[in-house]
Nucleic acid binder design. Structure first.
Lengths: 193, 193
DNA sequence: TAAACTCATTAAACTAGTTTAATAAAGTTT
DNA sequence: AAACTTTATTAAACTAGTTTAATGAGTTTA
């Protein structure tokens, strides 16, 4: 059962879940190891797993106008998937790709649904983790409208130290809604101060 | 029990909930009538209700740099609250204000928590509604990074027809992350085509 | 070791927004 | 109806980004 302990602790940080249903649910997880540059999900696939990132880094992006548009970076100790595809069972429009050697644990939707059916506590965990994800996403919407790109870049440096060391700058630029040239200009401006 | 039927139907559109726990939960709702321009929530208050908008329109905004920054417009048949304050029990940083005469139904957090404790089905409704809110918020994040303001304005017109008729244009501008002048320029540009 | 890539920076011309201020139009109040 | 207030447009000067293309610096591959 390997390093599911991290995952187990993560669940328990949201709400109390009894040992039995939690271990039952955890028993369905499978370990996936990705090499740097490898894709976990590609556009066109139907996503039927929910993932937990244990070690490494994965970026969530789409291809648009011939370029990659990054939506998110997932690093240690987070849950993620392509939710639109996972929920609707429709082909994904996105990619999930490792920026470095990465270990994730994956569980099939059917097993999670079964576990939620059988455990009210696990269902609550599901609700609370979604709630947290929604609040984070919404605060990002707010910042995108009301902060300058420079402020958002500085905040990223502060909130996710080390990310710029792990991930190429042009992906950071895309995440911030900028071109590589635009981000480079901002960095230059900040140097001078 | 008035027009709780709309609210009831809304819940049932997410998942099956037995009559008994659902009616129990609905029994705690209180009707609130707001006049145009009236605030439902003001910054500094701790938000202890979850709301359902039955009739009218409410905008969710914050004061920043001396101006109003609009995050969202809530119209008929949606759930809403200031979630950060509601979840943490901390003073709100936001306002919720009616742009026209509005009717909302409100339920106290303690009653929802009690109902969720007693009904796994209601807890599931809570999870699924949060999931939906998250997906919507995330697709907005994506559009903010990858679409022009002109595209986002046109999409708003298409997705929420009538909103521009109900709400002053400078609030729409703020919602789109623009100044009133900027939005006016975009509209002028679109006229010419 | 050299060749080939990948990635970040720079420059130059351009564009879509900003700010400030003035004007016009519409809605409210007296 | 007149006066006042609120909202939308326009203009002019400005700014923070864009695009395209060239250069440089590290990495990886042969």
């Amino acid at each position: 059962m390997d390093s599911l302990q991290n995952l187990k602790n993560k669940v328990l940080s949201y709400t109390k879940v009894d040992e039995k249903p939690l271990d039952y649910w955890l028993s369905f997880y499978e370990k996936i190891e990705l090499k740097k540059g490898e894709a976990l999900v590609s556009a066109g696939q139907v996503v039927i797993h929910f993932y937990y990132l244990d070690v490494g880094c994965i970026y969530y992006y789409k291809m648009q106008d011939g370029g990659t548009k990054v939506l998110e970076f997932y690093t240690e100790d987070v849950f993620f998937t392509d939710l639109p595809s996972y929920v609707k069972g429709a082909p994904s429009k996105y990619f999930l790709r490792a920026t470095e050697d990465t270990i994730v644990y994956a569980i099939k939707k059917t097993y999670t649904e079964k576990s939620y059916d059988e455990s009210h506590q696990l269902e609550r965990f599901g609700r609370l983790s979604m709630q947290e994800a929604f609040i984070k996403s919404y605060s990002r919407v707010e910042r995108m409208n009301n902060r300058t790109n420079e402020e958002r870049y500085l905040r990223l440096l502060e909130k996710r130290p080390g990310l710029l060391q792990r991930v190429p700058q042009y992906l950071i630029a895309s995440y911030l809604g900028l071109t590589p040239v635009g981000l480079s200009k901002i960095r230059k401006r900040l140097m001078k101060v």
